[in-house]
């Protein structure tokens, strides 16, 4: 086949609404160098016709930044949860299968509802308690640049949910808050002011659906597109909560 006529073949799992039955549709998109999955979906938007020439609706999905930094476009591509904007066609085997990350409720087609992840950030007290945004005529505490580097690594978490989808223990019927929010708890514990609320965070993680639900299967760390060392931080939290449990015991 001539270079210019090369096509990319997609099999896309569609679903009209949260309670509808999924079905598949196949599409073909003209190949070009550096094409990624989001750019392919955009081509389908311009001409929503299936491989067999049937007119259909454009596929629904979520994206914003197209730079692998906002986290929005996570979906399952050839069986692996990842960011669609950074999934280059050249690196994927065809036909390319797209499905929603069903660890989360499906909104429509490839779009999912990840509000549980944002809710979990409330549970783990995911912020530093500052008195206010006003000036306090004081510098913030200095930080060891090494600790700051670890914090930076974790604070790049874009709430995409790849790790959640990869984790065998996170699903719609389990209470497990999952790897990403746990790592965030550790992030705030690392901050010199955030540390003041460390006990509250650890207590939250000792409740049902917290650390104890992690089976240490290590899937999450392999799935994270930001290469955040999730299991290392989960292990650290485990040690911290063990100490805290002892303290709680003696304080009773």
């Amino acid at each position: 086949m001539a270079e210019t006529k090369k096509k990319v073949h997609f099999i896309i799992e569609r679903q009209d609404g949260p309670n509808s039955q999924p079905y598949t549709e196949e599409f073909e998109v003209d190949y070009r160098p550096a094409l990624n999955v989001v750019a392919s979906l955009m081509e389908i938007q311009k001409n929503p016709v299936t491989k067999d020439g049937k007119k259909t609706t454009a596929v629904v999905w979520e994206c914003n930044c197209l730079e692998k930094v906002c986290g929005a476009c996570m979906m399952v591509i050839n069986g692996k949860a990842q960011q669609a904007c950074a999934a280059l066609i050249d690196h994927l085997e065809q036909p390319i299968r797209l499905t929603a990350a069903r660890t989360f409720p499906v909104v429509r087609d490839l779009m999912i509802d990840r509000s549980v992840m944002f809710e979990s950030l409330k549970k783990i007290h995911g912020w530093v308690d500052v008195d206010g945004t006003w000036e306090v005529h004081n510098d913030a505490p200095r930080q060891n640049p090494k600790t700051a580097t670890i914090a930076y690594e974790i604070s790049r978490c874009m709430t995409c949910g790849c790790c959640m989808d990869a984790c065998p223990n996170v699903n719609q019927s389990s209470e497990f808050i999952g790897p990403a929010p746990m790592a965030q708890a550790h992030l705030f514990n690392l901050h010199p002011i955030g540390e003041y609320q460390k006990e509250e965070r650890l207590d939250a993680l000792m409740e049902k659906g917290g650390l104890a639900s992690c089976g240490n299967s290590q899937n999450c760390v392999q799935a994270c597109p930001k290469e955040i060392k999730l299991t290392e931080y989960i292990a650290k939290l485990n040690r911290d909560t063990n100490k805290q449990a002892l303290r709680n015991l003696f304080n009773k």
Binding site: V130, E135, D139, R142, A148, H191
Partner: peptide, 20 residues
């Protein structure tokens, strides 16, 4: 002043060896 506010909130600014 805004930078100091962000620093208190925990923004992971890149730091010098001295921690500034």
């Amino acid at each position: 002043k805004l930078i100091k506010m962000f620093d208190r909130m925990g923004v992971t600014f890149t730091r010098t060896p001295e921690g500034l």
